[in-house]
Amino acid sequence: MTHTHTLPPRAANAAGIRIEGLSKTFGEVQALNDVSLDLAPDRIYGLVGPNGAGKTTLMACLCNHIFKTAGVIAIDGANPAENAAVLGRTIFIHEDQAYNDAYTIDRILAAMPSFYPTWDAETAQRLIERFQLPIKRRARKLSRGQKSAFAAVLSLAARAPYTLLDEPYLGLDPTARVVLYEEVLRAYSEVPRMILMSTHLIDEAADLMEEVIVLHAGRVVMKADVDEARSSAFVARGLGEDVRRLAGSREIIAEHALGRIISATIRGRATPEDERLAAETRVSLEPASLQDLVAALGIHDLTEALKNGSQS
């Protein structure tokens, strides 16, 4: 066995994805609003935010499943629209992918190498077994969990340099979710690729991500290294006046009350002075979890979040 300790090598010819001023409207609804992002190849990104934030729309625009209203998308420097060579380097299985009525799992698997020259049948076989998928069943007839599992098989075995996973855990039981996360990491380790994974199970998936992107109402409100994001706020809990004194002029991005006790998510890092003051006033300090932070950004006044949190 070989042991490498450096990060996996960059995939050949992968330059990443550049998104500039991307907007998408559905009638009156602005699903994406001036989104700009630079996504490096060979990195695992988490895409989080409340329902309706634009996560799926962003992925669908990247893969040209739907057409953008405005802006620029460049995958490896090229426009993906009507560009089969570029689109062949991406994979995005939609949550309610419309499979042909007659197609069974094994028939779809057999067709995959013609779409993806990088297709790895061994990976597909292993995942089919681990998820215990019935290969003679028609894809349309699969349960919610089986559909997710099958989407994971297709997405990971394709070995596409740009792999988009849209809430890949839907309907999976906890055991199958562990299999999913293990296989995402295994696939990534074997053949490094960019993985953009949307999720609501933030704390469960946080350890997989290198960077997290938070979408809210069609805008990017944060893009940061996961560790940096975690340390960008902390939670203070105690009597209201004590907590407010401790927060001082710093911004409280979320607050919950339990009688006279409040729990406040404060932007910034806790300092030794905070710890001293907290000990004196019976205030407890805890790091914000990524889930706390995203929830706080979500209910926070959007313009404030844009002003303070946007790093992209």
């Binding site: 300790h5 450096t6 990195r43 996360y181 380790s189 350890d207 997989l208 991500m209 290198e210």
Partner: peptide, 21 residues
């Protein structure tokens, strides 16, 4: 003795390989 590689650590603890690195 040799310690596990980043990929082995990532798989074992189910964390991003960059974190293991």
């Amino acid at each position: 003795t040799q310690v596990p590689s980043t990929n082995e650590l990532a798989a074992f603890y189910r964390i991003n390989p960059a974190t293991a690195g």
